[in-house]
């Protein structure tokens, strides 16, 4: 499954409610069904750490580093990539 992030969050990802809903309503069910999820960030210039945390932290707690075999990040700007890596790093450190 591929999720077009820009259509969900616009050009800047900061709304944690949307992040939580996206995780609960789309990503978690897809992962539970054994699907690979591609988050396509084309058109999204930036994201807050809070947004990415709300979208990813529980998934990292559940799947650990194996999550990154199941969820792929596509067409990320350098800023988005840095924030995703930040959240991944501190969550994996926290486990």
């Amino acid at each position: 499954m591929t999720i077009d992030m820009e259509s969900v969050v616009g050009s800047f990802a900061e709304n944690k409610d949307l992040a939580r809903d996206l995780r609960r309503q789309s990503i978690e069910p897809a992962l539970a069904a054994g699907e690979t999820v591609i988050l396509n960030f084309a058109g999204v210039t930036g994201a807050t750490q809070s947004f990415v945390h709300a979208m990813m932290s529980e998934l990292i707690r559940t799947y650990g580093e194996d999550l990154f075999d199941k969820v792929l990040f596509q067409k990320c700007s350098a800023a988005v990539q840095e924030v995703v890596e930040t959240v991944a790093e501190y969550m994996l450190e926290s486990l």
């Binding site: 944690k16 939580r20 809070s50 945390h53 709300a54 932290s57 707690r61 501190y90 926290s94």
Partner: peptide, 23 residues
């Protein structure tokens, strides 16, 4: 960083990490 009023758990809750002000 990593301290939030919502929990003492490292890594925060599902929606709070306690990083915003540090950033």
């Amino acid at each position: 960083p990593g301290v939030t009023g919502t929990t003492r758990r490292e890594g925060g809750t599902e929606t709070n990490a306690g990083a915003g002000l540090f950033f």
